[in-house]
Simulated scan of single mutants.
Amino acid sequence: MSDDHVYLTLAEGHEDDTRWAYGTGFEDPLHGVDTAVPDAVDRAELAALCVALADDALVSAQRLAQWTTRAPELEEEVALANIGLDLLGQARLLYARAGQVDGTGRGEDAYAYFRGPDDFRNVTLAELPNGDFAFTVARLLVFAAWRLAHFQRLAAAPDPVLAAVAAKGAKELAYHRQYAAQWVVRLGDGTEESHRRMRAGLDAVAPSVRELLDAHDAGPELRAVLTQVTEAAGLPLPEIPPAPARSGRAGHHTGHLTPLLTELQSVARADPEATW
């Protein structure tokens, strides 16, 4: 199976989607959406879910931003930056919704810039250092496939705002998954060195997969994508350990999150009263 074929099969059902809805488009995904919280929705649970999903996206976006000026080619630098912008757009909307429903009235900056590592609820996969390009695309494939399955379910969420954000985000995540899959196949089915690196990247990501499966029941979709892509790449499906060593959803992070947030939050914390 060629990399073009796996790219196209993963794209089925998304042919009319815009690739960069947040990165270069200006359509408001909440236009015409009723922002009132339905009576049947638990506000605390909704806020916690929005924050966790936003933390995943913000931390992932920061990692992708670190590829700027470092990617193998200019085209890939632009692609990774735009994927990061998509995720940042998702984070902003989710943080804003959390502030609306948790009773604090906090804005998105308060969540992004003025919380410490112990308060973040992102999955630990998002915070792992970039490593080489093969590791980055392996991480992106797993993250995008998992998040896409989650967002496709959330598009039917009882909260209309969360449903609208998920429906819009799913279009972007479909392309993120396709982009990563194409590169996994290209590297896995390339030279001996690229094959070795791609296999090492998938093996390095595998220990973090169980946390994703425990955080949300996206197992069937994620396994199906990994099976399809690794077969096309001529790579073995990495073995997923039975349990994660730590859970970011519970606030237990790796040592990599603190320096990442220090970098991310430095400007805002230097002048907390500034208006952006």
Rank of each mutant, 00 (worst) to 15 (best):
residue 97 R to H: 05
residue 41 V to L: 09
residue 81 A to V: 06
residue 67 W to T: 05
residue 15 E to H: 15
residue 75 E to T: 15
residue 100 Q to W: 04
residue 93 L to R: 02
residue 30 L to W: 12
residue 110 A to C: 12
residue 118 D to R: 14
residue 70 R to G: 10
residue 17 D to E: 12
residue 25 G to I: 05
residue 113 Y to R: 05
residue 55 D to W: 00
residue 47 A to K: 00
residue 64 L to W: 01
residue 82 N to Q: 12
residue 53 L to C: 14
residue 68 T to F: 02
residue 117 P to Q: 11
residue 107 G to N: 09
residue 55 D to A: 02
residue 136 T to L: 01
residue 98 A to H: 09
residue 32 G to D: 04
residue 138 A to W: 05
residue 19 R to C: 08
residue 103 G to V: 11
residue 44 A to N: 02
residue 41 V to P: 08
residue 15 E to N: 10
residue 86 D to T: 07
residue 45 E to K: 12
residue 71 A to I: 07
residue 82 N to D: 10
residue 128 L to G: 10
residue 77 E to T: 04
residue 71 A to N: 14
residue 25 G to F: 06
residue 103 G to N: 01
residue 11 A to R: 06
residue 92 R to Y: 08
residue 57 A to W: 06
residue 13 G to M: 10
residue 62 Q to T: 13
residue 57 A to R: 08
residue 110 A to Q: 15
residue 62 Q to S: 03
residue 69 T to D: 08
residue 139 R to C: 02
residue 39 D to E: 10
residue 59 V to E: 09
residue 56 D to Y: 00
residue 49 L to S: 04
residue 93 L to Y: 04
residue 57 A to Y: 05
residue 90 Q to P: 00
residue 90 Q to F: 03
residue 116 G to T: 14
residue 29 P to T: 02
residue 69 T to G: 06
residue 64 L to A: 01
residue 27 E to H: 09
residue 139 R to T: 01
residue 42 D to Y: 13
residue 115 R to Q: 09
residue 33 V to D: 09
residue 134 A to I: 07
residue 111 Y to Q: 00
residue 42 D to M: 13
residue 37 V to A: 06
residue 21 A to I: 12
residue 101 V to T: 14
residue 110 A to G: 15
residue 82 N to R: 15
residue 132 D to H: 05
residue 125 L to D: 01
residue 65 A to R: 12
residue 128 L to K: 11
residue 107 G to F: 15
residue 16 D to K: 13
residue 118 D to T: 11
residue 77 E to R: 05
residue 68 T to Y: 09
residue 138 A to S: 14
residue 30 L to T: 05
residue 124 T to S: 03
residue 25 G to Q: 03
residue 114 F to D: 07
residue 51 V to C: 01
residue 99 G to P: 03
residue 63 R to V: 00
residue 128 L to R: 13
residue 37 V to K: 07
residue 108 E to L: 10
residue 89 G to S: 05
residue 48 A to Y: 09
residue 132 D to I: 06
residue 79 A to W: 13
residue 62 Q to Y: 07
residue 95 Y to L: 03
residue 102 D to V: 06
residue 9 T to H: 15
residue 55 D to E: 03
residue 43 R to C: 10
residue 116 G to H: 10
residue 134 A to H: 10
residue 140 L to N: 09
residue 87 L to N: 01
residue 117 P to G: 13
residue 35 T to E: 10
residue 130 N to Y: 09
residue 100 Q to F: 12
residue 88 L to R: 04
residue 86 D to Q: 10
residue 126 A to Q: 02
residue 58 L to R: 01
residue 91 A to H: 02
residue 111 Y to P: 00
residue 103 G to I: 07
residue 47 A to Q: 02
residue 42 D to K: 12
residue 133 F to P: 04
residue 80 L to T: 06
residue 17 D to Q: 10
residue 63 R to I: 01
residue 31 H to E: 08
residue 13 G to I: 15
residue 63 R to G: 00
residue 93 L to G: 11
residue 93 L to E: 03
residue 98 A to C: 13
residue 61 A to P: 00
residue 40 A to C: 11
residue 9 T to N: 15
residue 97 R to Q: 04
residue 74 L to A: 10
residue 73 E to H: 14
residue 75 E to G: 11
residue 76 E to S: 13
